[in-house]
């Protein structure tokens, strides 16, 4: 196997450091040097992200470092996306995630983190914001046909709104066609199961892992 191109090694390092402008510049340089977009993605960005994930799991990296790495990843992916789509005729079309904090709940920092992490994982993220009524989720899912729907709630009093939202998606015939992930401080796996969500994640990093697992299991 050939040695990784020096530019890609540097790209992976910039990604690890969460240097978004550096990642962008190196993606451009790598393409200018004649490397294929797929190679830049695999041997540069994804290779860097793999080390990020490894060190995060080992407890060496802190969450803010993961966030900036995910932002840098997103910047790189956006640069490569048109070329990837050309090369693979749609195979690299991004998966879409619709996120929102349910109606009556105004907390959205955790959900924003999930959005950043999903973007870093290559998702196109449509964040509906906070205090999102069930009908707005239904409308967004109808229009966007996302692979993933993420519902967030921080209050015990708004958790039942997750159930209502999922019930509305089911009634509109949209729940089966997507994967619904729930999260937020008071939310538990047992609650997720009870209200008919497909999955639960306790934090932003595991949300992405859980989303990937669930989508892989469905072949989505």
């Amino acid at each position: 196997m050939s040695e990784t191109h020096a530019t890609l090694v540097e790209l992976a390092q910039k990604l690890y450091a969460g240097d978004a402008p550096g990642v962008l510049a190196l993606c451009k340089r790598a393409l200018g040097e004649g490397l294929a977009a797929r190679e830049v993605l695999d041997a540069g960005l994804l290779a860097g992200m793999e080390v990020v994930g490894r060190d995060f799991k080992a407890g060496e990296l802190f969450l803010p470092e993961i966030i900036v790495a995910a932002r840098a990843m997103h910047a790189g992916i956006e640069e490569l996306r048109p070329l990837l789509a050309e090369a693979a005729s749609g195979a690299a079309a991004p998966r879409t995630a619709v996120l929102g904090t349910v109606k009556g709940d105004l907390h959205d920092i955790g959900k924003k983190l999930v959005g950043i992490m999903l973007e870093g994982a290559g998702f196109r993220v449509l964040d509906l914001g906070h205090d999102v009524a069930p009908e707005r989720f239904v409308e967004a899912v109808r229009v966007e046909r996302p692979q993933l729907v993420g519902l967030s709630a921080l209050l015990s009093t708004t958790m039942p709104m997750m159930r209502t939202t999922i019930a509305e998606l089911e009634r509109a015939g949209l729940a089966a066609g997507t994967t619904i992930l729930v999260g937020g401080a008071p939310v538990t796996a047992a609650w997720a199961k009870e209200i008919g969500a497909h999955g639960f994640a306790p934090d932003a990093v595991s949300a992405v892992e859980r989303a990937r697992e669930l989508l892989a299991a469905r072949g989505a």
Binding site: F56, G59, F62, L63, P64, L113, P202, D203, A204, V205
Partner: peptide, 8 residues
Amino acid sequence: MMELRRGG
């Protein structure tokens, strides 16, 4: 404080 490894 935020728990820096997992965000809790």
